[in-house]
Design a protein around this nucleic acid. Structure first.
Length: 572
RNA sequence: GCGCCCGUAGCUCAGUGGAUAGAGCGCGCGCCUCCGGAGCGCGAGGUCGCAGGUUCGAAUCCUGCCGGGCGCGCCA
């Protein structure tokens, strides 16, 4: 099914060629702000300039050639310096909406060229509690994953768990010293971490023992490995509990931690040396950058192997790229991490490209801004720590529960709790997803947990209402047939844009575009609902037609929110 | 020193070449005998950080400055 705007764009390009002999011209179609016009095409000014003609005359000639575009258009009009204002025929929009309603993809065409896409996101650390700093990668990554899958791509979720490195020498050594073989729960791990860290900082002998313990771990010493596995298992229980509360699609099967790449690191270093991508410098193996310099003006380097023989995280990232290309045949690799790692990933990607590993593949860093306090400084609590993710989610659900209880006193308590969960978690996720991700974010409980305005609850409410009206109607409407009011026309136009927005999100990896779209759709729906009686429409046909619009809106909101990882409750 | 991100209404933010720059919150006024008021309508509120440039047209692209955040050899 071809969206009306796509059909019109093609018709315009063809009309431009027929009228002016210019092939393959982008008609520069944008939404119109003029009352009565749906779209505006801005090609005339540019073409007229090139051809030395009057823009309005150019627009007129194309408009004449375009006609009604095989019934797509009700009106074309040239105005201002040469804008071509276009208004869809109500029947064309109605026809599209009717088809979309019968389509489980809601009229969204699948990707023309499906790819295998690896999305690397979340990546919490073993042995540490998840805090608000982990929220953005997890929530943004999950929204991208869901959207790319909906578009028809094969998505490989990669949770690059921080499960390897020096701190595990420290932890396992302390376990050995204190005779701990198994941790009962995550709280015990927290205590272990604090105790081990204290010794590590204070006792040079322990520090030394921890260092050699890392070597034992990396060499695969069975006893040390067993202790390490216990740490990972206990941590994953904590992490998975958070994922389930957050309604994130990550599970154990997506964990491909740093430890996974351990056996691949030595061959990766060899390959990079062999290809002369990496060189030795001051006892270490590095890849020198041609784009970045140090403060003293020397080239910045990516540490591949440290002078003590240990591996830098750069080589882990390079081994991961090599693995994802060769074993997974990934066409596109996406890394959702904070913006501070931008230079690191740029150097990693440069090195991979120089080694020839990413030829014909896309490798993209998807950076997001820092979480700042309300003083504009990096976010810290009063005690200097971070806010645990569990606490944030608890607060969100508590706040939502108060409102839910107040608004829905007749709903059973169990269902109220379920609604509060959907509303509270949805609010937190939406707050993170709805602003452009590269901006720094001021952390604020009030903003993250807000329930009014451009928030998840507003969208959930609109979706629930649009869905419930169909239920109350007692019939299933399948046909949009009567489009008389401008608000109806505007609503249909907005509904038809869903697929374009998903394409944009897939291309730019910016979920906030979907948020903005859904908010506008909800607003457009509310305007329609205020202006157009549905159940009390003038005729049975109009009633069915408007009901169908309600249903398509409800489905689009539900699907769109679902792609953001936000669940719509049955009622609220 | 090199590099990245950001600067739009009191606050939090949309808007990456098109006509009078838009929301939400907050503030003021109005709307439940009318399909769900977690809603809707109206209003006040802006030198789009500053200065040049490109363009028929710039919040948007280019250059320079100012302000904030961040990164640059053995942490990830």
């Amino acid at each position: 099914m071809i969206a009306p705007t796509h059909a019109l764009r093609a018709a315009l390009t063809a009309a431009i060629e027929r009228a002016l002999g210019e092939p393959e011209v982008d008609p520069l179609l944008v939404p119109s702000r003029q009352p009565g016009a749906d779209l505006q095409a801005n090609f005339a000014m540019k073409l007229a300039k090139q051809r030395g003609e009057a823009p309005r005359a150019v627009a007129e000639r194309v408009a004449t050639e375009l006609g009604d575009a095989d019934g797509l258009l009700a009106k074309t009009e040239v105005s201002g310096p040469g804008f071509l204002n276009l208004t869809f025929a109500p029947g064309a929009l109605a026809e599209w909406a009717t088809a979309a309603l019968a389509d489980e993809r809601l009229g969204v065409a699948p990707a023309a060229m499906p790819q295998t896409v690896v999305v690397d996101y979340s990546a919490p650390n073993v042995a540490k509690e998840m805090h608000v700093g982990h929220l953005r990668s997890t929530v943004i990554g999950d929204a991208l994953v869901r959207t790319l899958e909906f578009e028809g791509h094969t998505v490989v979720r990669a949770n690059h768990l921080g499960d390897w490195g020096t701190q595990f020498g420290m932890l396992t050594q302390h376990m050995l010293d204190s005779g701990i073989e198994h941790l009962p729960d995550f709280a015990a791990l927290g205590e272990l971490y604090r105790a081990a860290k204290a010794r590590f900082d204070a006792d040079p002998a322990f520090t030394e023992a921890a260092r050699s313990r890392v070597v034992a771990l990396q060499a695969g010493d069975p006893g040390t490995l067993a202790l390490w596995r216990d740490l990972v298992t206990v941590s994953l229980e904590h992490i998975n509990a958070i994922y389930r509360r957050l309604d994130v699609t990550l599970t154990d099967e997506h964990v491909v931690g740093e430890s996974f790449y351990n056996p691949l690191l030595a061959p990766t270093v060899d390959a990079l040396l062999e290809a002369a991508v990496a060189t030795e410098s001051r006892g270490a193996v590095v890849v020198a950058s041609t784009r970045f310099t140090n403060q003293d003006g020397t080239p910045a380097v990516l540490i591949i192997r440290k002078s003590d023989g240990g591996y830098g995280y750069g080589v882990t990232d390079l081994a991961a790229i090599d693995y994802r290309v060769r074993e997974l045949d990934a066409h596109r690799m996406i890394y959702v991490t904070d913006a501070r790692q931008a230079q690191h990933f740029a150097m990693v990607f440069d090195a991979a490209a120089k080694a020839g590993w990413t030829d014909g593949r896309q490798v993209e860093h998807v950076p997001f801004g820092a979480m700042l306090g309300d003083d504009g400084r990096p976010f810290k609590t009063r005690s200097g720590g971070t806010v645990a993710l569990t606490d944030l989610l608890d607060s969100a659900i508590e706040r939502a529960q108060v409102i839910v209880d107040e608004k829905n006193p007749d709903v059973p308590a169990g269902e109220r709790a379920e609604i509060a969960r959907a509303v509270g978690i949805g609010a937190v996720k939406y707050a993170d997803l709805s602003t452009s991700r590269q901006r720094d974010l001021i952390f604020s409980f009030d903003r993250m947990l807000a329930l009014d305005g451009n928030t998840a609850p507003y969208l959930l409410y609109a979706a629930v209402r649009a869905g419930s009206i169909a239920t109350r109607a007692g019939e299933t409407a399948t046909t949009v047939s009567v489009v008389t009011e401008p608000v109806e026309q505007a609503l249909l136009l907005k509904l038809a844009a869903f697929g374009d927005v998903l394409d944009e999100v897939a291309a730019t990896l910016e979920p906030h575009r979907l948020c903005t779209y859904l908010y506008e759709l909800a607003g457009q729906y509310t305007s329609f609902y205020e202006a157009c009686p549905v159940l009390k429409a003038d005729t049975p046909e109009q009633r069915r037609s408007r009901l169908a619009m309600c249903t398509l809106t409800a489905e689009t909101l539900k699907t769109g929110l679902g792609l953001l990882g936000i669940t719509v409750p049955a009622r609220m």
